Simulated assay, not measured.
Amino acid sequence: MRIFVAGGTGVLGRRLVPQLVARGHQVTATTTNADKLGLLERLGADGVVMDGLDAVSVGEAVAMARPDTMVHQMTAISGHPDIKHFDRWFATTNRLRLEGTDHLLTAAEAVGVSHVVAQSYGAWNGIRTGGWVKTEEDPLDPTSTGQGARAIRHLEEVVVRAGGAVLRYGAFYGPGATDDQVELVRRRQYPIIGDGGGHSSWVHLDDAATATVLAVEHQARGVFNIVDDEPAPAAEWLPHLAACAGAKPPMRIPVWLARLLAGKTAVTMMTEGRGFSNAKAKRELGWRLRHPSWRQGFKELT
Results as ranks from 00 to 15, higher is better:
Trp287Glu: 05
Lys264Trp: 04
Ala177Cys: 14
Gln296Trp: 03
Leu260Tyr: 05
Ile192Gln: 01
Ala243Thr: 14
Gly246Asp: 15
Val5Phe: 01
Gly170Arg: 11
Arg161Glu: 14
Val158Asp: 08
Tyr190Trp: 14
Leu214Tyr: 09
Ser144Lys: 07
Val71Thr: 02
Pro142Arg: 01
Gly13Leu: 03
Glu99Trp: 00
Gln26Phe: 05
Arg150Glu: 12
Ala123Ser: 14
Arg295Gln: 12
Glu109Arg: 10
Val255Ile: 12
Leu43Thr: 02
Val113Met: 06
Ala162Trp: 12
Gly10Thr: 13
Met251Ala: 12
Thr212Asp: 04
Val223Ile: 14
Ile193Tyr: 03
Arg168Thr: 00
Lys264His: 11
Pro139Arg: 02
Pro292Asn: 12
Asp35Ala: 15
Ala208Ile: 07
Ala22Val: 08
Lys282Ala: 10
Ala118Tyr: 02
Arg186Leu: 02
Leu96Thr: 07
Asp180Tyr: 07
Val182Asp: 12
Thr143Lys: 10
Gly112His: 06
Glu109Gln: 02
Arg283Ile: 01
His291Met: 05
Gly7Trp: 04
Leu205Pro: 04
Thr106Gln: 06
Ser201Pro: 10
Gly10Glu: 03
Thr145Arg: 15
Val159Pro: 09
Ile193Ala: 06
Glu99Phe: 06
Val56Ile: 09
Ser144Val: 13
Val116His: 00
Leu96Arg: 07
Ala165Ser: 10
Phe90Tyr: 15
Glu272Ile: 00
Gly297His: 08
Leu285Thr: 11
Thr106Cys: 08
Val255Thr: 13
Thr93Lys: 08
Thr265Gly: 01
Glu272Leu: 10
Gly13Tyr: 07
Gly263Cys: 06
Glu136Trp: 01
Ala279Arg: 09
Asp102Thr: 08
Val158Gly: 07
His218Arg: 15
Val158Asn: 05
Ala171Asn: 09
Val49Lys: 12
Met74Val: 13
Thr101Cys: 03
Val49Leu: 12
Glu137Gly: 15
Ala151Asn: 02
Val62Thr: 11
Ala281Gly: 05
Val160Arg: 05
Pro18Leu: 08
Leu105His: 10
Ala76Ser: 11
Ile192Phe: 00
Ala234Gly: 14
His85Lys: 06
Leu155Arg: 11
Trp202Ala: 06
Ala215Trp: 04
Arg66Met: 13
Pro67Tyr: 09
Trp132Tyr: 03
Arg295His: 12
Val267Ser: 01
Arg14His: 07
Ala262Val: 00
Val213Asp: 02
Pro254Ala: 01
Val56Met: 11
Arg15Thr: 04
Val203Gly: 04
Arg66Glu: 14
Gly275Arg: 03
Arg66Phe: 05
Gly79Tyr: 09
Ala171Tyr: 13
Val11Pro: 00
Arg221Trp: 12
Val48Met: 08
Pro175Val: 12
Leu98Glu: 09
Gly7Ser: 07
Arg95Ala: 15
Arg14Ser: 06
Arg88Asp: 15
Arg95Thr: 09
Gln19Trp: 02
Val213Asn: 10
Glu156Asp: 08
Pro254Met: 02
Ala220Tyr: 06
Ala6Leu: 04
Met74Glu: 05
Thr28Asp: 06
Arg295Lys: 14
Pro18Val: 11
Cys244Glu: 12
Glu157Leu: 04
Gly122Thr: 01
Val58Phe: 03
Arg221Met: 12
Trp237Asn: 05
